[in-house]
């Protein structure tokens, strides 16, 4: 069975599927995430596919501040993703709350609710930085143990 496990882990790193969730962002980061998927940057050439279903996803890209309403959605989505998983927080808002950190409905960065593996700064981060963040996430991904039997 060990050979099979090694095979699965290896192929997962070669073709990770990502889920993107806008968690109260201003759209700036979201359109940059989408720009990564479109012809000029085209991360699909690395085998990365954007999926809509958390149960299909290996990588989770979160943009924006966490507020009191979407924290439940965020925690729910992360819980639905199968292990091993990597959470990438994008943009100043996803890191700390950014310019909105003092606003009354803002809790702060994504790490206030779910554990974050990679932080990508920028307002918004450029597509190159996002791709770099995803690649860093994949390195972490390789080290994460698969807990499934």
């Amino acid at each position: 069975m060990d050979y099979l496990k090694v095979f699965i882990t290896k192929s997962r790193i070669k073709s990770p599927w990502l889920l993107h969730f806008d968690c109260g962002s201003c759209n700036g980061c979201d359109i940059e995430v989408l720009a990564c998927l479109t012809p000029v940057y085209d991360i699909e050439r690395f085998g990365i596919i954007n999926v809509g279903n958390p149960k299909h996803a290996d990588l989770f890209l979160v943009t924006g501040t966490v507020n009191h309403r979407n924290k439940k959605v965020l925690a729910n989505l992360v819980a639905q993703m199968p292990d091993p998983k990597v959470v990438v927080a994008l943009g100043s808002c996803g890191l700390t709350g950014g310019v909105f950190r003092e606003a009354y409905n803002v809790i702060g960065g994504v790490d206030k609710v779910v554990p974050v593996d990679v932080y990508v700064p920028g307002c918004p981060p450029k597509p190159e930085a996002i791709i770099d963040g995803v690649v860093t996430g994949l390195e972490k991904f390789a080290r994460k143990k698969d807990d499934r039997p």
Partner: peptide
């Protein structure tokens, strides 16, 4: 609504 509400007018 309310998933993106930040309350920035009050800033």
């Amino acid at each position: 609504l309310g998933f993106v509400h930040r309350g920035l007018e009050r800033l």
